[in-house]
Design a binder for these strands. Structure first.
Length: 708
DNA sequence: TACCTTGGCGCC
DNA sequence: AAAAGGCGCCAAGGTA
């Protein structure tokens, strides 16, 4: 077996796109090819390699690297990479492996950290890394090789180490993974990484002109609402020392609604200099604002003394209770002004700033979340408004290239199907397979005078506005329950009575008893499997952030406190974590929040997390394995199907118009066939397929259902 | 200036 | 420090 460790040193590029492939000016200046731990080749080019590999990959069985997404995205369009992947070539990313081996606790590990952890090698402060940090990239170093021979020697040593280290780490990781039965799950997430790279490199088309126009429109709207709101508050905002009323300031909003103090800074003359110029000093004082005098009991105290929360929920309560028409109007204006500003800056502006020639290349963070879900940033493509007034405008900025269609394929009720799979609840499975509307079932829990059929007719056939709305509430409850929320939180997000929500939970537990009990069974299992936290997995020298925040996420034997605030450092009192291993071998860690009581640690674990982590985590595995399944075809049929984005249970594509039907049929069949993939990868029997819905359109704001 | 925390809100 | 379903981003306000 030939293993190859691949690593590139690149230029640094602009501050917007960093050192990644996104910046068109960036290139590779050194290629490090380490074969089987002993044969290391360094290839340098002062002109850059023009994003191509120096060698073929024909005799390579496994490519190893740390954060391979970075390197492979540079050479994704190289023929050698293409044929390697199409012929089933595999990768082992030590960052991905470490993430899974630690139960998703070690996020974005650095090579230096793993070097310490596995090889006990302390990375000496390197001149090379220091240069990189200063913005001096490999291009400059390679070009200076004859001028700076000492630096050049150092650089070559640095490169060589970076090539060999991942191979050494891989061998140890593999041993650990075999012991824990984690090889299949690590292979899955490595395959998934290839699909993620493919998505990232493809990019998402935006209509830049429309984006700029929408940005301007939203800003204009913001200013209009702001002006009206400012006009209303002007009679409460009279003190000349006050700054301009700022509708985005939590301080200002709290003060104007509930009354409060606003800190102001004034320049005060405190004498004269020798040259006769006046001497000033900044004096801080507070100005009292009475505002609308809304009773603060409607809200909740903020962290800052004397300030209160002003979120949407509270604003709605105020608007519905007040008899002051001006206040009522202000509530609506504040909301609109803020929403337009958010829509403009968080989305339109970010899209414009982040795009490169009309294409967005978001970061898909694959070693970040606790549950192994993907996360997205710069821009975040997973939280673009959909249901509110901006949903259509914002999504319609994402357009299909000429001759192509936008396609979105969603798993329907993925979390519920996952719950059925994990719990094996017979009735739930039957209901899902029969197409029973679970939201209507839940509506029935607190409308006992009506049967399922009657309610179904009212909601879905007659589309009675009242019952349709009731079903929407029930739907929200359904999803909240699936996410593992407790009744209180459901009340907060739906506005339903606590009594009703509790009844729903109660009846749900009766109806789908095995499914409802799933979380408890995880918790029981996990409570039996309490381990010490991972101890010195990351040495202190690698702590990051203030006070080593990375460590506090579970890498240190944390001291714990008793009810009187006494600190216990003894081994037997150290914090422990619960570990639960899922069907597929993925490990989840749960923080033990227990305290010391009479000298002994009483374990205590959250009720919601044990339910949520395996559900969310398994859902993400299904997303990962189905996406990975598409990769080869996406490469071979790259002129017909391009995958561009994922949002947890949905996948975004461009599909060429003239081959739409066969492509969509193939995509749907492949994605829905989770049993086939589960069997192949994990040897697990899954008794049902996972149904998907397809939508198509010319842009992602104007999509219509498509039946294959 | 650069970085951190808080409040608030978008998505699944 | 505890504890929460999982995330990321922006603006404000504060600190070094």
């Amino acid at each position: 077996m030939n293993i190859l460790s691949l690593d590139f040193e690149t230029s640094i590029g602009t501050t917007i796109h960093g050192s990644t492939f996104r910046d068109p000016n960036n290139d590779i200046y050194t290629q490090i090819w380490a074969y089987n731990e002993y044969e290391v080749q360094l290839h340098h080019s002062g002109r850059g390699f023009n994003k191509t590999l120096v060698n073929r990959l024909d005799d390579v069985d496994l490519i190893i690297g740390h954060n391979l997404g970075f390197d492979l995205s540079y050479v994704w369009y190289d023929n050698a990479v293409y044929s390697y992947i199409v012929n089933g070539g595999k990768i082992w990313d030590t960052q991905v492996a470490e993430y899974l081996l630690t139960g998703q606790q070690h996020q974005f590990s650095s090579l230096a950290e793993l070097q310490l952890k596995y090889l006990d090698e302390v990375e000496k402060p390197s001149r090379i890394s220091a240069l990189y940090k200063k913005g001096i990239g490999a291009d400059a170093i390679v070009q200076a090789q004859y001028r700076c021979p000492r630096l050049w020697k150092l650089y070559n040593k640095y490169c060589k180490t970076d090539g060999i280290t991942p191979i050494k780490i891989y061998k140890l990781q593999k041993k650990r993974a075999e012991k824990l039965g984690m090889i299949p799950i690590i292979e899955l997430y490595n395959d998934y990484l290839l699909s993620i790279i493919n998505m990232t490199v493809t990019g998402i088309s935006i209509d830049v002109v429309k984006c700029e126009k929408t940005f301007r429109d939203f800003n204009l709207k913001h200013l209009q609402y702001l002006a009206q709101a400012t006009n209303i508050v002007s009679k409460y905002w009279t003190d000349g020392a006050l700054p301009t009323f700022n509708i985005n300031s939590p301080d200002h909003k709290s003060a104007i609604l509930f009354g409060g103090n606003i800190k102001v800074v004034e320049k005060k003359e405190i004498g004269v200099y020798k040259n006769g110029n006046p001497r000033f000093k900044n004096i801080e004082r507070v100005v009292r604002v009475d505002g609308f005098r809304v009773p603060a009991t409607i809200s909740r105290p903020a962290k800052k003394l004397g300030l209160y929360a002003t979120d949407d929920k509270i604003m709605q309560t105020i608007a519905s209770k007040t008899k002051n028409p001006q206040l009522k109007e202000y509530c609506e204006l504040q909301k609109q002004a803020m929403m337009y500003k958010k829509a403009a800056n968080t989305y339109c502006k970010a899209f414009i700033d982040r795009s490169v020639d009309g294409l967005l290349y978001p970061n898909f963070n694959n070693t970040l979340t606790t549950t192994s879900r993907l996360s997205s940033s710069a821009p975040n493509m997973q939280n673009i408004s959909k249901r509110n007034q901006f949903g259509k405008d914002l999504h319609s900025l994402f357009v299909a290239p000429t001759g192509w269609k936008c396609v979105q394929i969603d798993f329907s009720q993925l979390e519920i199907w996952v719950l059925a799979l994990l719990s094996g609840d017979k009735l739930l499975i039957k209901h899902l397979l029969d197409g029973v509307d679970l939201h209507v079932v839940r509506l029935g829990y607190y409308n006992e005078d009506k049967t399922y059929d009657e309610l179904y007719k009212l909601c879905k056939v007659d589309k009675d506005p009242y019952w349709d709305k009731q079903r929407t509430y029930a739907k929200t409850v359904s999803y909240q329950m699936a996410y593992g929320a407790m009744p209180k939180k459901v009340v907060a997000s739906t506005g339903l009575d606590l009594g009703i929500v509790e009844k729903i939970f109660e009846k749900e537990a009766e109806t789908y008893s095995e499914a409802s009990n799933f979380g408890n069974s995880v918790r029981d299992l996990m409570q039996e499997n309490v381990n010490f936290s991972l101890g010195m997995d990351i040495p202190n020298s690698q702590k990051k952030g203030k006070g080593g925040s990375r460590i506090s996420k579970g890498y240190e034997l944390l001291p714990i406190f008793d009810n009187s605030g006494n600190v216990f450092y003894n081994e037997e009192h150290r914090r422990k974590v619960g570990i639960y291993t899922s069907l597929t071998g993925k490990r989840y860690h749960f923080l033990n929040t227990g305290k010391v009581y009479k000298g002994e640690l009483k374990s205590s674990f959250s009720f919601t997390q044990p339910k949520n982590y395996p559900m969310q985590g398994t859902a993400s595995e299904i997303q990962a394995m189905t996406t990975a399944e598409l990769l080869k075809a996406c490469l071979i049929k790259g002129d017909r199907i391009k995958m561009i984005n994922e949002v947890h249970d949905s996948k975004w594509f461009y599909v060429r118009e003239d081959v739409l039907e066969p492509c969509l049929k193939w995509l749907k069949d492949t994605i829905e066939d989770v049993p086939k993939i589960m069997l192949k990868r994990f040897g697990l029997e899954v008794p049902f397929k996972f149904p998907c819905d397809i939508e198509i359109g010319n842009d992602f704001g104007n999509m219509e259902k498509y039946n294959v």
